[in-house]
Computed example of a mutant assay.
Amino acid sequence: MPHTAEIHLKPEILARYGLPDIAYPLPPGDLQAALSLDGELPLAVMLQALQQHGAEAGVDWRHYEPAMNRLAQLLTADDGRAAAPVMGDDWWLELGPVDLAGELVTIQREESLVAAISAREDGRLRVAVFRPLDAKSAEYLIGLGQLLHPEHGVCMRENNWQYALDYSAGNGNYYAADRGEAYLSYWKHGLGIGSDGSEIPGWHAQRALVARQVAVAATELGVHYVCSN
C-alpha cells in the first residue's frame, strides 16, 4: 500500500477503543493523531487504510478483520434495522437478509463467503454481508449497485441483477481468486449447490452463517466510498 506507515498503538489507546494489538497502516499525515494519547483516533481513516491493505493479494487478510470490525462498530450508531438502503451519488443498494438457498451472486475470498447478493423485484440488489468488507469487496458492491441509466440501463444490461450475473461470469474472477483476492461467483441453486445439483459441503455449510449488522456494513461501504473519492 503506497505512502503508508505501520504503527503500533499504546496499550492505553488499545484498551480505550477496544482495538486488537496489531500493526495499523496509516498515511503519514494521520500518524500524529494516532500516536497522541489525548487526541481522538482517526477511525474512518484507519478503517479505510485497513480496507485497502487487506484487499491486497498475498496478505493475511483474516488477521485484519477483527480490527476492521471494531473500527466500523466504533463509527456506527446501530439503530437495529434489519434492512436499510445505502447509497452514493451514482449507486444504490439495499442491505438486508438474503435467502442463501436461492439464486445468488456472491463475493468470496478463498473458501469464505464475504457477501451474498440477490435480486429485488425491481431488478436492483439486496445484499447480506458476512465478513468485514475489504476495498475490493466494497468496490464490487458499489459498482454492481450503480444507478440505472434511462437509455443504457446498467452497463448496457437491463438492470443491476442482469449486470451482476454477467460480471460474475467474467474471467477476471478466476484470476482474482487465484491471486487470493475477493472475487464474484454465481450460485443458480443456492450457496453450496453445484450446477449439476450436487452438494459442495464446504460452501453448503456456510448457509448457517449469520449476516453482520446492517448498520455496520453500511458504515464500511460509506467509509470506503467517502475516503476513496
Rank of each mutant, 00 (worst) to 15 (best):
E121G: 15
D38F: 15
W92T: 14
S112R: 11
R131S: 11
M68G: 04
L75Y: 07
V59W: 11
L37P: 10
L50Y: 03
L100Y: 03
L113E: 01
Y64S: 10
L74C: 08
E94C: 14
A116K: 06
G80C: 04
D79L: 14
L71C: 03
V114R: 12
V98L: 01
D134E: 07
A83E: 08
P150Y: 05
L148K: 15
G54K: 08
I117D: 01
W91S: 02
E103Y: 06
L144S: 10
A135M: 04
P85T: 13
D134A: 04
P42D: 08
L71D: 00
I142Y: 00
L113T: 08
W91I: 10
A77Q: 12
G102C: 05
L74N: 07
L148H: 11
A55G: 05
V114G: 08
M68W: 00
R126Y: 14
L144V: 09
N69C: 15
L50R: 01
D122N: 08
D78E: 15
A84W: 04
S112K: 14
M87F: 13
L133N: 02
R81P: 12
L47H: 00
A72Q: 04
I117Q: 03
R81T: 14
V59Y: 02
L50G: 01
I142K: 05
S36I: 07
A82I: 10
A84H: 08
E139Q: 03
V105Q: 03
M46I: 05
L37I: 15
R109F: 07
E111N: 15
T106M: 11
F130D: 01
D99G: 04
P97M: 02
S118K: 13
T106A: 09
L147Y: 10
Q73P: 02
